[in-house]
Design a binder for these strands. Structure first.
Length: 259
DNA sequence: ATGGTCGGGTGCCGA
């Protein structure tokens, strides 16, 4: 089972590049972030025509997440539990029914800039809620994959120029500590586990020739429960997508599971 | 050293 995460930065803007990548990469499951569309505006027919089931959790203008799957989806949850007043669409879960069932959580973690400030407070509170949600899912002892745009640079080696990020919400010690606490629940970060080569990133800013200079950061992650980590065969970043026509500022990251 | 680019949607905000 091939599971990917891809922050597409607007479904309307990516209506050619996303199907092109799907046709080439042929993932079974894709978690999308920043669809920037309400559910009714999402062009589901395009993806249904390619054999994908489509579950969205959209929002006007900002945020919005979705799961595309060639395998049946069950028990869809929309929205991160723990705050009924939170109206930002950043979380969707579903069980993918393959040879083995895999619970997949697709997430768009808050950016948090500027820090300090209310947006950073929201980021840290959201991460605490995610911690609680994952903690409640782990006792099921089933394969669990939490993937998406974490908006966290875990370590210095995950940025081309870490010194430029020291005051940024993506790299502040509190952000990295909250990410570590997730890992310390017993999750495996798939790319770090499978791929040790340096200089591999998942995001390059549109500005200042960041792509051409490989001035990137690695902020799109797949975190696996022990039962999912047992099935992990591979993890790769589809870097070449950033060089295509009308690219997102993020590229897909995917895992292959023996499931 | 500075400023720079996208997307969504129609005035700027978010990244």
């Amino acid at each position: 089972m091939k599971i990917a995460t891809f922050n597409i930065n607007g479904i309307k803007a990516r209506i050619e590049a996303l199907p092109a990548w799907l046709a080439a990469a042929n993932p079974d499951v894709v978690c999308l972030q920043e669809i920037k569309s309400v559910d009714e505006g999402f062009p589901r027919e395009v993806f249904e025509g390619m054999g994908y089931r489509v579950e969205t959790h959209g929002q006007k203008s900002f945020n919005g997440v979705a799961i595309l799957s060639k395998l049946p989806l069950e028990d869809v949850v929309r929205g991160l539990p723990g705050d009924d007043a939170d109206e930002q669409a950043r979380w969707i879960e579903a069980t993918v029914v393959g040879a083995k069932a895999v619970r997949v959580c697709g997430l768009y973690l808050p950016n948090g800039n500027p820090a300090p400030g209310p947006k950073y407070d929201y980021k840290l509170a959201w991460m605490a809620r995610m911690q609680a949600r994952v903690k409640s899912l782990l006792p099921l002892e089933e394969p669990l994959v939490c993937c998406g745009d974490y908006n966290v640079i875990p370590q210095a080696e995950d940025a081309a120029k870490p010194e430029l990020w020291t005051e940024d919400a993506l790299y502040l010690p509190q952000s990295r500590a909250a990410f570590r606490r997730l890992l310390n629940l017993g999750l495996t970060e798939a790319f770090r586990a499978r791929n040790q080569s340096p200089g591999q990133y998942s995001f390059w800013d549109y500005q200042a020739g960041a792509w051409e200079r490989n001035n990137g950061i690695r902020i799109d992650h797949l975190l696996l429960s022990p039962q999912a980590a047992d099935l992990l065969q591979d993890c790769q970043i589809d870097k070449q997508v950033r060089a295509g026509d009308k690219p997102s500022d993020h590229v897909p990251v995917w895992i292959e599971l023996d499931a």
